[in-house]
Design a binder for these strands. Structure first.
Lengths: 342, 342
DNA sequence: CTGAAAGCGCTTACAG
DNA sequence: CTGAAAGCGCTTACAG
């Protein structure tokens, strides 16, 4: 005969009605006390709070939201979590939310797929969120319509190179690409290589490349050799593509990478092959990740402010819950980090 | 006189009642059609769906949840997003949720603070989630009570070395520490260094250390030199602590790190100082991160299965929404990755 | 196959 | 300072 392990009795749910009855007051009084609203006699408050604690009452926010017609939920959509960039944006959002202790983030991952984004936004809107924060400007027509017509605040994060639906918070990736070109030209480089990843999944990488080649063109130059990985960016892809590019016949002085992950892979390839940086070839990234700073030679790159993007995004919508008639772009900036690899 | 930019008219919210009226059916019929439940005549369905589309109806899930008494929300608490480990767990959760298209994750970050976790779980429970997934076993008494007494399913992720509230999904960190010691002993190492980070914030790192030293002790050995960073783990901290440890007077043959981030920092320090690995000193990490695999010398480490932890956690609770009387531990395992640094 | 009615657990004017 | 009542937008037995 076996003895079944017993968990303690589960709490049967207690409602405001139960609290009201036990405290001998009305439901509205309980509600007011719990939300700290309206004038309440001190004894009443004490009596009710004691009952609340004794009964272990947990308010049902679903009912609360329905009754008050606002949910304190913020919908967030990021394209991916496999690169540390978006978790950093989420940290910024989290920091902004923390100040505002009744807000909760509902997070979805779109895998850079506008159709998935559309489905997720549809789902999110059904929760009547206080705001929707999504990434970039690449939406389906239906998504754009839903967002335009709903009156929730919407932030398009990361990028400010297009006209936002409501607010855009981020940096100009086109300008970052241009700045990279100017910086490297100023340092005397003339023969450029480019190592990238799939643009279909990362429109901002394409914008940076665009800005970069524009400035080169103004100087009468262009990219001499190129290697582009078919999939997402990663250290491994950067490493493999660097090997491929350097295995070609066109010599280059510096390789510009689509981002730091790719660039770190490039550095690893060069180290492994015993080639000096920047002597044999220089390396330039994008993002300014921690890892780049700690390498034996700090990675030359552009620092984007991911945490700040998240923080400013949530601040912007919390500051003014009503969507204004005017669209806004908030620039979180970027800066060249000289480093030692270019 | 300035012309103000005009956004298109915002959609005034349309409810089931509006849809029902327009389609000349009852609200219950609309509800059934939308949820694909119960027998419906095809013409009725077509007529209603057309109205739904024409009016751009978006169901209010808050009302739906209140009426049906279940929310399709899953509460998730991770201690941090600054290390790629937890985003990978979230990816696993996301993958599991995707199969189940009406579930949404509400994610909070506890900063490894049990008091914050308590507040977050209280907030989460007020949304009547289908399940709560949190990390580790370190909770306040109040958290434990709330979770025990509520009847939501709860998963404690990452670790299976303690008795769970409901289900634990993860690996034995103590066993991983032991395995590390056995592996390194088998490879002939006898003089061990340890480089770690703050344990108060990372109980699992402590468990690994515990298992590690236990096996050493059985072999009549112990850790010869130690350097522990005061804060969270990071590449920078690993680099600095490695410099500190090697600057001491006690020679070591191999350094065991609290995790891969720290170990990568160690490798960077050694590379920068021109010291050979494992000739001058060997390096062993924990986690099996991508970055480690791509370094010029692949990092010797133990692979933990973060994605799998997230995936199995959500699968476990989705499989059986009722909390059983029996507690379960699901082992996601780990494996030595020999690598080239130890 | 469809509809009328009650109810989910709160909040919010309104009245006193 | 407090309470009775209506209502938020759905879903769910129940009846037909």
């Amino acid at each position: 005969m076996t003895i079944r392990q017993r968990l303690p009795e589960r709490k049967s749910k207690v409602t405001v009605k139960d609290v009201a009855r036990a405290a001998k007051v009305s439901e509205s009084t309980v509600s007011r006390i719990l939300r700290d609203k309206g004038p309440i006699a001190d004894d009443t408050r004490d009596k009710v709070m004691e009952v609340v604690r004794a009964m272990g009452y947990v308010p049902n926010r679903i009912a609360g939201s329905l009754a008050s017609l606002n949910s304190n939920l913020v919908g967030v959509i990021v394209p991916s979590l496999s690169n540390i960039v978006f978790p950093e944006v989420l940290q910024g959002i989290h920091a902004g939310l923390e100040a505002n202790d009744h807000m909760q983030a509902v997070i979805s991952i779109s895998d850079y797929d506008p159709d998935k984004e559309e489905a997720m936004i549809r789902g999110l809107l059904s929760w009547k969120p206080a705001a929707v924060l999504t990434s970039g400007f690449e939406h389906t027509e239906a998504t754009r319509r839903m967002l335009e017509f709903s009156d929730v605040r919407v932030v398009e994060m990361m990028d400010i190179d297009s006209e936002p639906i409501d607010i855009a918070v981020g940096m100009s990736h086109c300008a970052a690409g241009k700045e990279t070109a100017r910086h490297l030209l100023a340092r005397g480089y003339r023969r450029f290589g480019y190592v990238g990843h799939n643009w279909d999944k990362d429109y901002r990488a394409r914008l940076r490349h665009l800005g970069f080649t524009q400035v080169l063109a103004e100087a009468g130059l262009s990219i001499a050799a190129k290697a582009v990985a078919p999939g997402a960016s990663s250290v491994g892809a950067g490493r493999a593509m660097t090997a491929q590019l350097l295995g070609g016949t066109t010599p280059v002085e510096v390789i510009v990478y689509s981002n730091d992950d790719m660039a770190v892979g490039g550095v690893f390839h060069l180290m492994g092959a015993g080639l000096s940086i920047p002597g044999h070839v220089a390396v330039f990234g994008f993002n300014g990740l921690d890892i780049g700073k700690e390498m034996p030679q700090p990675l030359s790159t552009i620092r984007s402010n991911r945490f700040l993007i998240g923080k400013k995004s949530i601040d912007a919508v919390l500051e003014d819950p009503q969507r204004p008639d005017q669209r806004a772009r908030i620039d979180t900036g970027f800066e060249i980090f000289t480093g030692a690899t270019a």
